[in-house]
Amino acid sequence: MDILFLLIPFSVVLVLLILIALWWAVDRGQFEDVEPEGQRILRED
């Protein structure tokens, strides 16, 4: 039972870090216009 006092705060911190990383990636434009990258590998250069 004592382990829950350790695991619950760690899991909350982990979720917050994941949300911050996702927000950072969206803010930096990582998910903007992903369609050309998928088509780029299909084109012959």
Rank of each mutant, 00 (worst) to 15 (best):
E44Y: 06
G29T: 05
R28A: 10
E35R: 13
L17T: 04
L14Q: 08
P9D: 01
I8G: 00
L7H: 00
E37K: 08
I3D: 12
L14Y: 10
E32G: 02
D27T: 10
L16P: 02
V15Y: 04
I20W: 05
R43D: 07
L22A: 14
Q39C: 01
A25D: 13
F5C: 05
E44Q: 07
E32I: 13
A21F: 14
L19F: 10
L22F: 14
A25E: 10
L7Q: 06
L17G: 06
F5N: 15
P9N: 06
L22H: 01
I41W: 10
V34F: 04
S11N: 10
Q39N: 12
W23F: 15
I41A: 09
F10E: 08
D2F: 08
G29N: 06
E44C: 00
S11Y: 04
V12S: 01
L6Y: 13
R43Y: 04
V13I: 15
A21S: 13
W24P: 00
I8K: 08
D33S: 08
R43I: 14
L22E: 06
W24Q: 15
F5R: 14
L17N: 05
S11P: 00
R28Y: 01
I20T: 12
I8R: 09
I18N: 00
W23K: 11
D33M: 02
D27M: 07
L22R: 06
V12H: 00
E37R: 12
V34R: 04
D45L: 07
W23H: 06
L14N: 07
I20Q: 03
E44T: 11
F31W: 12
P36C: 04
F31S: 06
V13Y: 05
L16I: 15
L14A: 15
S11A: 11
F10C: 10
D33N: 15
L17S: 05
M1P: 11
E37A: 09
F10Q: 07
W23R: 12
I8Q: 05
P9G: 01
E35Y: 07
L22K: 09
D27A: 15
V13E: 03
I41M: 06
F5Q: 10
V12Q: 00
E32D: 14
E44K: 13
L7A: 11
E44H: 05
P36H: 03
I41Y: 01
